[in-house]
Nucleic acid binder design. Structure first.
Lengths: 335, 335
DNA sequence: CTGTTAGCGCTTTCAC
DNA sequence: GTGAAAGCGCTAACAG
């Protein structure tokens, strides 16, 4: 049983209030200060944050909910979020939703009951239920990445549709007309990116046959299986657009296993670099999101909400730009 | 301000004790049960875990310290740890040491003050300081991965030396005699793996010239730079053994950027698969650790310690086997 | 600057 | 089965 403030009270003969004051950076007589400090050292005293939290009603802890901790995308986000939070003196409680909405909700409840001061969520799907829970409990919340427009909640994300549109245009600009897409069709992000692709194709006046669109869950398997199907198509496209990290991974695997080569037989454009583009051979061209900036903005937004108790404001929506990382995975087709 | 047990006391007319009893699964009259349940629903009551923790002295929360959250190795471990913990009704508090021992210690303190019931740590270096802190605070702790032998602490890890020895023997078995190694030289894991490599080479009667050993920090950069140097060597080795995930990544990048090809010009053997072997071209041969098993064993070990208060036992050391994943990155050399 | 007092929200004896 | 009361470790007025 660790030492408590009471132990150091007895050791020093001072009152609880004085000691507490010292602990919280208040002014104490130099002699008492020394008294307290030595007692703390000798007793190995450490503040019980649980007890402190009970009375101050704040835990200096932020909860983060990610849809999958084993996704490098989330790992990277978490690193930057952690860095930003640490700088402000906050700790963070990370919960893995494990790609499951029910787990996500259970975790949200866990965080709320743990009395975190705020929540950042990278949702499994839309996160709407979690937002509702947090609002109900009066806990500030910020959405990242998979946050729909008009979600009535503060959020930071990229312009998914525009990013996909521009990426598709890059392919078109290099002479491709038969372009397939592998995307997630479940959550907002994937749907929007697919929309952007379709718009670009329509604008350019190109067909988008059904068998060029592969929408399913956000997973390596989906990327892998879809790319296999694409490569086996009688009328094979000349380029494929993969709209997230896991799908890109899977697609690369499928091409590697096949007889066909990139970019000679098939051009590829991926999403969410995360070192992948340097590991593949050839180097993959990628749409990259500003991970660090997104994370910092999310933290800033959340901490702002915690500071000033302005509940009933219109939610803030921060939309960040993406950039294109050029590799050697896109073949130029002479027209 | 969320509802408290007091609110539901007033709503139902029952005493705090009865309500508390209900909350903790005790027996209550059916009529009272209904009374309480409706009150809970109407008031949206949720237990305040902070208050509960203060009195029960347990938080049903496990803290996990990882050396870097953006490393896929740790992300994977965390996923399995989380799964195992959830199954037992525990939540987890994840802290990123950010490759820094000081941050690691600060995080350990944070966890201890947050009164986690136990700690799992994948240390930055040896974790000895953290072990000491936890022991002092009376918090059960288990080390993973980078835990030295005789560390006087429960731990689960692979047999690093033997794994590296066997891996090197695979290379030797395929006719390689000039084998270089890129490893981390800072923490236990890397040192042991290098030792295993040296042993295998010595046993086979092969030279290990200085310029074939590249020991530095555990990072992508180190893998990348070292592989570049290796490829430029006048007396280039025929094979390279990369002893962890990040180093393997970096080495693959360097080869991809070079004029040389794998396995024709250079054979490669990596460590810690994590999907990488399927993404590279050719598929990389890899030593793979039993991530899931390691995680589950660590959780089991920790929860066991929490259950029975057997402090003064000899620490348990669980050593798990690795396996070799065969790819196409090793060329057979006819002798 | 210091001490006294009350109380955060909950569990837990111990009578009843 | 239920209630009264004490207390977990700490902070926050408020006097002094």
């Amino acid at each position: 049983m660790p030492a408590t403030i009471k132990d150091i009270k007895e050791r020093t003969g001072l009152s609880l209030a004085t000691i507490s004051k010292y602990l919280n950076g208040g002014n104490v007589l130099p002699e008492n200060k020394i008294l307290i400090e030595t007692a703390i050292k000798e007793l190995h005293y450490e503040v019980n944050e649980i007890a402190r939290g009970l009375v101050t009603k704040q835990t200096k802890t932020i909860g983060v909910l990610v849809y999958s901790i084993e996704s490098l995308f989330n790992g990277t986000l978490l690193k930057y979020i952690g860095d930003a939070l640490r700088k402000e003196g906050y700790g963070l409680l990370i919960c893995d939703s494990n790609q499951d909405e029910e787990t996500e909700q259970k975790n949200a409840k866990f965080l709320i009951n743990k009395k975190v001061d705020g929540i950042i969520v990278v949702p499994v799907l839309y996160g709407s239920k979690v937002v509702e829970m947090a609002n109900h409990a009066g806990v500030p919340i910020v959405l990242m990445d998979r946050s729909p427009e008009n979600c009535d909640c503060d959020c930071v994300r990229i312009d998914n549709r525009m990013s996909a549109l521009r990426a598709t245009n890059v392919l078109i600009g290099k002479g491709h007309r038969k372009i397939a897409i592998i995307c997630s069709a479940k959550e907002y992000t994937g749907i929007e990116r697919c929309q952007g692709y379709k718009e670009a194709m329509t604008l350019a006046g190109f067909d988008v046959p059904e068998e060029y669109i592969y929408g399913d869950i956000h997973s390596i398997e989906h990327g892998y299986e879809s790319m296999k199907k694409i490569l086996a198509l009688p009328d094979r496209p000349t380029a494929v657009f993969m709209t997230n990290y896991e799908i890109t991974l899977g697609a690369v695997m499928a091409v590697n296993e096949s007889e066909l080569g990139c970019p000679d037989d098939i051009s590829m454009l991926g999403f969410d670099d995360l070192i992948l583009s340097h590991v593949t051979n050839p180097a993959m061209s990628m749409v990259v999101q500003p991970m660090k900036n997104m994370s910092e903005k999310a933290v800033e937004l959340l901490l702002g909400k915690i500071g000033s108790d302005r509940k009933s404001e219109t939610p803030m929506e921060i939309v960040l730009p993406t950039r294109l990382l050029e590799g050697n995975s896109i073949k130029e087709i002479k027209m």
